[in-house]
Design a protein around this nucleic acid. Structure first.
Lengths: 164, 164
DNA sequence: AACAGATTGTATATATGCGAACTATCTTGT
DNA sequence: ACAAGATAGTTCGCATATATACAATCTGTT
């Protein structure tokens, strides 16, 4: 079904460029809902799973990551990380540990967190493969390239001079 | 900059399929942030702008939309719409009006809302064109097609049998 | 007409997102 | 060594998302 139909847009405000933007939003939103559904049964959210994945694969010598680093890699404001880690600590998936820099916490997975991640990761990857199965490799390459181009159009400098 | 680099993924959990999914999320998230920044200066959020656009272009004979219809078109739970319309009513952009079906509210733009929408819409479309300018029309068509294919992989039936 | 079932909007609890302001701490320049 | 500035994490107020439960109302079947 074409997107305009699905969104009920009889007469979109829209240009074809706008339609492409809506399409990206919409697909990302459905992918996120789908991932959230998937993770819910494991007592996780997709954001929490991403934190575990980052700790698993991106930990440096410290064996964990600072909250600032997690925020940076997840592209979210560091203010979010406080409550996110609070919740994950409450469900005993991660723990805050001290660092030589007394301003920072090193976030590490607990045994429980590690065990859950090890169990969920392969199932998640299987699901991702399934979702992407209608799209062949050249097409995957193509969207990655095109989306990169769009992000170039989002650079700070470009984003000025649009308000009168 | 390639996405893995930007996200700091030395060793992503990732398959190439997963990279494509990350790419979609990431681009949508940046587009949304960018739109939010844009609308903030007008005292709007992107979600609120979308509500105004839906009322402007999708109103039936009633001259407005029910909350359920807005939720359906924006693909969000109708429970969100209550507080969203509360805020928009508070800033006098829309108003709830009575319907013959006493369960429903008809949401209409106020004069103030209409005036703001008329002012902001062309500026927004100009911004969208600018953001999409590095991508030519055939490429726009291509991503729309590919994203549609991905959504097909998200259908209910496909989404089962992934949890052991 | 009456009852069962669907639908609408609301309320609540929870999980994210943002910006701004704050404290504690580290770093840097003099 | 010390003041100025940068950085990390927290807290606040807000906007948005979810699922769930509920009351009011409509609709369809008998």
């Amino acid at each position: 079904m074409p997107l305009e139909k699905e969104l009920g847009l009889k007469e979109p405000i829209a240009t074809s460029e706008h339609e492409a933007v809506l399409n990206i939003y919409y697909t990302a939103s459905l992918l996120k809902k789908c991932a959230d559904d998937f993770f819910r049964d494991f007592g996780l959210t997709d954001v929490q799973f991403n934190v575990l994945a980052l700790i698993e694969y991106q930990s440096g010598s410290a064996g964990g990551l600072t909250q600032a680093k997690i925020g940076e890699m997840m592209l979210v404001n560091r203010a979010n990380i406080t409550s996110l880690i609070d919740r994950m600590e409450k469900s005993q998936l991660v723990e805050r540990t001290a660092d030589t820099d007394r301003r920072t916490n090193i976030i590490k997975m607990t045994a429980k967190g590690k065990k859950l991640f090890t169990k969920v990761e392969p199932l998640y990857l299987k699901q991702v493969r399934q979702v992407m199965s209608p799209v062949d490799k050249p097409e995957q390459k193509k969207i990655i390239t095109v989306l990169e181009k769009i992000r170039m159009g989002l650079s700070e400098d470009t984003m000025k001079n649009f308000k009168e």
